[in-house]
């Protein structure tokens, strides 16, 4: 394997890891702040992809689909938090797991009614649809590069918001010591709602971005949910930095696993998870006091 092919695979790994990071950071944020484990996270990823397909079909513009899809997901997130999720605060994990499982069934059926169950493809925007010629018979699609750049920017934005803004400070305080933050006068009702909506929006954003390079199909949320869980377990729950590390590790393991060990590639990420569990049960960047 020559240098350029290796580089292409590395780019693929980073691009895959970057999308994973967006989705998983939403999951980890929601758990870190709300203390709620949301199994329906993958369903919103799937919904994002279907929204991307539908809005692109209606308006002919992928950019509109990107903005519109994220907005729709955010609004849905706010509604869901207000109606259902707020009832879960302080309830045990079993209730959270089963309520979000119920949500998955509902979302799946709504998708069925609105968009059907067909497999779709989405075209990337025209100005990103070309590819860069690397060698005579090797080229790299511009859209994949654009995803890398976009996700990197999004990741930087997430880190900036969490580390440098007042909202981020509240979010960090909330995950560190909720009672104390409440005593200091922070109203978590609103914070919860927006964090949940943002988490959902991140999942949908991942689905929208992935739509042009993969197919849009009903079961796509399940696979993503499992992967996000593995990412969160690897990195340490509640830690956005951990999600970044975990996502990159999965991206690298999966991509190079498919290149070097194609027969066992689907098992490799679970082996990785098992190793990390033996080594650091609370994740690479997680608190080890559990």
């Amino acid at each position: 394997m020559d240098f350029i092919t290796l580089g292409v695979q590395l780019l693929n790994a980073v691009q895959y890891g970057a999308v994973l990071f967006l989705v998983a950071s939403g999951l980890t944020l929601v758990f870190g702040i709300l203390g709620v484990i949301n199994l329906a996270h993958g369903a919103f990823y799937m919904l994002g992809a279907y929204l991307a397909y539908w809005i692109t079909l209606m308006t002919g513009s992928f950019v509109v689909a990107l903005l519109g899809g994220v907005l729709v997901a955010f609004v849905v997130g706010i509604l869901l938090e207000t109606v259902f999720v707020r009832l879960l605060y302080g309830r045990d994990h079993l209730a959270q797991v089963l309520l979000s499982f119920g949500l998955i069934l509902v979302i799946d059926e709504i998708r069925q009614v609105l968009f059907g169950k067909d497999v779709h493809a989405v075209a990337p925007p025209a100005w990103l649809s070309g590819s860069i010629q690397l060698t005579d018979n090797l080229s790299y699609p511009v859209y994949r590069l654009a995803i890398c750049v976009f996700c990197l920017m999004a990741a930087l934005a997430i880190f900036f918001v969490i580390a440098r803004t007042k909202i981020g400070m509240i979010v960090r305080a909330g995950s560190e010591n909720r009672e104390m933050a409440r005593v200091l006068g922070i109203k978590f009702d609103r914070v919860n709602r927006y964090v949940f909506a943002a988490g959902i929006a991140l999942a949908a954003l991942g689905g929208i971005l992935i739509a042009p390079i993969s197919t849009v199909f009903p079961g796509m949320g399940d696979g993503m949910l499992i992967l996000s869980f593995v990412v969160v377990v690897l990195g340490g729950i509640g830690s956005v930095g951990g999600a970044a590390v975990g996502a990159l590790l999965i991206g690298l393991t999966d991509t190079f696993g498919k290149v070097f060990f194609p027969s066992v590639s689907s098992i490799l990420i679970y082996v990785l998870m098992a190793v990390v569990l033996l080594w650091r049960p609370s994740g690479i960047l997680g608190r080890q006091d559990a």
Partner: peptide, 28 residues
């Protein structure tokens, strides 16, 4: 032996992941 090293929400996620590992084993 692996998943019981974890607690609470980790346990949920890790059991889910290992269950899916067996699913994909038979699926693929």
């Amino acid at each position: 032996a692996l998943v019981l090293r974890t607690r609470g929400v980790y346990f949920i996620m890790v059991t889910l992941a290992f269950g899916e590992m067996l699913f994909f084993f038979f699926h693929d």
